[in-house]
Design a protein around this nucleic acid. Structure first.
Lengths: 283, 283
DNA sequence: GGCATCCATACCCCGCGGGTATCGGTCCAG
DNA sequence: CTGGACCGATACCCGCGGGGTATGGATGCC
């Protein structure tokens, strides 16, 4: 199977419409029909049920869609990473891309970068910030080499990881709130909290969940709204460094611990990644 | 990048010889040279250092070799799995392949298969036995869907896992050995044991490590040799079911626990695999 | 220095991927 | 009920690119 065939199939499987898929691929519809038919013949399997009015995936088609996406990611990763070290070889910039959620574990990250820079075999590290749930795909398709993730929020499916830190979660409240001075609260209490209403973060697709709380995009904005008494938020312990006047933090006794891990794609145990991971484990 | 280009590159990178690589690929040498040159041009990177007498990989080439192998495995997996469910769809047999080391966890495996067969959504499970260290590749290239692995012996790099059991290790000795009746021994003692000498298992490549002990290929043979006083062996606790007259088992107090896990390739969380894993966790 | 080895270049050919035109089936509006 | 819009498949043609053979240029060895 060639990647071209996989790309064609993924396009059709996602659009469920040969015409649109062909347009998206920048080719005409007949060659696309032919390519899919040929793929089906070679696999000895019907992938799409077409009934001239609607197109749908067979069971085999659904499986191939998942597998093909993963395979194409792997091919893309090979290409991207090779391009990168190729450029680096010619004397150019960064040869290691680290990705993490914006605003998370900033303290740990700073310590890690400092410690790694002091290593004898250190290479330049390009730090990229990204949205929630984006790290996995970025590692898989080669846009990044290593990531800082937070369990249980992020999925580490298919990634190799080492645990770096474990911390409790806290609820951040405006000073003067009823709970000020309490040693701890429970998740049940936090879930039931409506005054102030919890802040709403954007989902990966950019939309916001329903609720009374204000929509926030970054930590600065968030903390300001907390200080103003308009909202509250649950954050891991390390967010304590973000505290300022007008905000109090109360630990949540029974919330799951947030575990910070360093993750990298398997098989890509390059010298650079290995060294960075080793450094991280010594922290 | 097309898989053909990756296959060509992997062949050259492994042979480090354009002629042999071309032969292996079943094409002539000039088209291969041209294909590699074109790949290098497209990537903007030199992959191979050729000096008309010897060919070697550049740093970028080494990276691409690793990445290309992984990518090709993923493509192969897509093809193989699709073929399989395609055949299954036409009324034919097994739609789930479980792989494990021969002779390991047989009791657990039997219980799992029984319990799973009783599930309402159960499909046929094709059990395959394979050599040490073969399970990972088999999951990655689609020859298998799910595996039973044993930490720390097997690597789970890049696989999703759930822990099923944890057991201590024991040393199996001929009855009447000095250690008969001891509550436990230490790894240091076992390592120093020369009478009887420890059995030697074949390595993945088929060769045997050096040593005084006999070369063994299967459990039957092994147990017979132990009973005859010719060898000893370290096995996990579950091997107790293999015991028979003439053999005693002594736990090793400080040996690492052997953890049996069920593993599957990420992203391929098909209904069948999910159901089997759920069943395994209920055991 | 002749030779063997090994990769690159030059050149040719044909298969295949891609394009246009058109067909056959299905759903819907009038 | 029927014409038209829509959608995928088929028919046919073309040009590029992947593959072949022949040969050149570089290098290490006897």
């Amino acid at each position: 199977m060639e990647t071209r065939e996989l790309r064609y199939f993924v396009a059709v499987a996602e659009e469920l419409h040969f015409g649109r898929a062909a347009e998206r691929l920048g080719i005409a519809q007949p060659p696309l029909s032919r390519a899919i038919a040929q793929l089906e013949r070679r696999l000895g399997t019907v992938l799409l049920e077409r009934s001239s009015r609607t197109t749908s995936l067979t069971e085999a088609g659904q499986l191939l869609l998942r597998e093909a996406r993963a395979a194409l990611s792997a091919v893309e990763a090979a290409e991207r990473r090779t391009r990168r070290v190729g450029r680096a070889g010619t004397g150019q910039s960064a040869s290691l891309v680290l990705v993490t959620k914006s605003g998370a574990s900033s303290e740990l990250l700073a310590k890690l970068l400092d410690a790694y820079a002091a290593e004898p075999d250190a290479v330049a590290v390009d730090v990229q910030l990204c949205g929630i749930g984006e790290q996995g795909p970025m590692l898989r398709d080669g846009r990044a080499d290593v990531a800082l993730l937070h369990l249980p929020h992020d999925s580490v499916s298919g990634l190799d990881v080492e645990v770096l830190a474990e911390e409790v979660q806290m609820v951040l409240l405006p000073a003067g709130h009823d709970w000020t001075g309490r040693a701890s609260v429970t998740t049940a209490e936090v879930d039931a909290l409506t005054d102030p209403p919890p802040a709403r973060w954007p989902r990966p697709d950019g939309t916001y969940p329903d609720g009374d709380g204000p929509e926030v995009r970054d930590h600065t904005q968030l903390l300001q709204l907390v200080a103003l008494g308009r909202t509250c938020v649950v954050l891991p312990e390390s967010a304590r460094s973000l505290l300022r006047d007008g905000i109090v933090a109360v630990p949540i006794s029974d919330a799951p611990r947030v575990t910070t891990v360093i993750a990298w794609p398997p098989h890509s145990r390059s010298a650079g990644v290995a060294s960075l991971v080793r450094t991280a484990l010594r922290l």
